[in-house]
């Protein structure tokens, strides 16, 4: 890389991050920095953590995990009365592809707004994109945002009425009629079949030249977002720019019983995945849901991949154009 090009990349990263800080500082969100090494994780079956070992004469031998997201600590800060907070930090995910969209470590912006829901976060997200418009070299990221629900997108691009296909049999039939080869086995789940339909027929059709906020994800995809009562959906959205996922947002589940039941179900799934991949199950702290039993504030949390956001601002299709030492080069 020529020195001038390197300096431009360095300056671009620094200025985008500075703009994000100024943006949240001006909206009463306090910047925090929580640990990278955690003794426990929130159970997520599909995230493989990097783990390391603590050797200490008092604490003994313990596994520590490099956080796949800072949420475990940020949610504790909210419980302790921090108010709205944000963090720009390094996150780590093992066993993912290393290439144009993934790197084992990446920069995440995570923000939590108290007394807010996922709709409020959409407003913040749009304002943040506007604040970044001086860096939008290609004009993709600051076009008017297309907002569409998962159900509407499934209808528009695949002519599926998703609300009517909430059973496993029905979603399998739908997948088969669309042309996917789905064989029902004992571990076929609704969300896997839904994802196969979504990734094959819907996601590739999402507009690439303007941001898309896809709202109201199916409840059957387990996560810590609030349910929308009386519907099969959750208060959750994802931001796509140039056709790839940039951010994920919830109205955070604050009912302790629901969080505890998420922990039980997600842990069972995590154990199953770890068993089939032959890796050990990370330590999960089952007392974590207890903090929701005492007036946990209503809040909405968003996780945003900063490197991918930078790609979209530059119109790049490869994350290695914005990461300084991509692991595909240094390994």
């Amino acid at each position: 890389m020529y020195a001038s090009q390197l300096q431009e990349t360095l300056r671009f990263r620094a200025q985008v991050i500075q703009t994000i800080r100024t943006f949240f500082d001006g909206r009463d969100h306090i910047e925090v920095d929580t640990p990278v090494l955690s003794p426990d994780l929130i159970p997520e079956a599909h995230i493989a953590p990097f783990s390391t070992r603590l050797h200490h004469e008092f604490f003994g031998e313990r596994d520590l995990y490099m956080v796949p997201s800072p949420e475990v600590f940020m949610k504790k800060l909210i419980a302790d009365g921090s108010g709205s907070i944000y963090q720009i930090s390094r996150c780590f995910r093992n066993e993912e592809q290393i290439g144009s969209l993934h790197n084992p470590e990446f920069t995440m912006l995570e923000w939590y707004t108290v007394n807010a829901d996922y709709q409020d976060s959409i407003i913040i997200m749009k304002e943040l994109l506007q604040a970044l418009s001086p860096f939008d070299r290609r004009g993709y990221a600051t076009q008017p945002v297309l907002q569409i629900s998962v159900a509407e997108a499934c209808w528009k691009y695949a002519q599926i009425d998703l609300e009517r296909h909430q059973t496993l049999d029905s979603i399998i039939q739908t997948a088969v009629s669309l042309g996917l080869s789905v064989n029902r086995s004992e571990n076929t789940t609704w969300d896997d079949v839904f994802n196969r339909i979504f990734l094959t027929y819907v996601e590739p059709e999402l507009s690439a030249d303007r941001p898309v906020i896809l709202t109201e994800f199916p409840k059957q995809i387990q996560c810590l977002a609030k349910d929308i009562p009386g519907t099969p959906w959750k208060e959750r959205w994802e931001l796509y720019i140039m056709g790839f996922e940039i951010a994920n947002c919830f109205s955070e589940e604050t009912d302790g019983k629901h969080v505890a039941s998420y922990y039980q179900n997600a842990y069972a799934q995590l154990e199953e995945v770890c068993r089939s991949h032959g890796r050990s199950v990370p330590y999960i702290d089952f007392s974590f849901p207890d903090m929701y039993l005492q007036n946990y504030p209503d809040c909405s949390g968003t996780a945003l991949g900063v490197d991918r956001l930078m790609m979209s601002l530059l119109g790049l299709e490869d994350i290695r154009g914005v990461i300084l030492f991509p692991h595909s080069d240094i390994l």
């Binding site: 997520e44 599909h46 993912e96 993934h102 896997d192 990734l199 996560c223």
Partner: peptide, 13 residues
């Protein structure tokens, strides 16, 4: 192409 949807397993498209 490999895709990892948010909250989903890894898929090959």
């Amino acid at each position: 192409e490999f895709v990892n949807p948010g909250k989903g397993s890894a898929f090959a498209r």
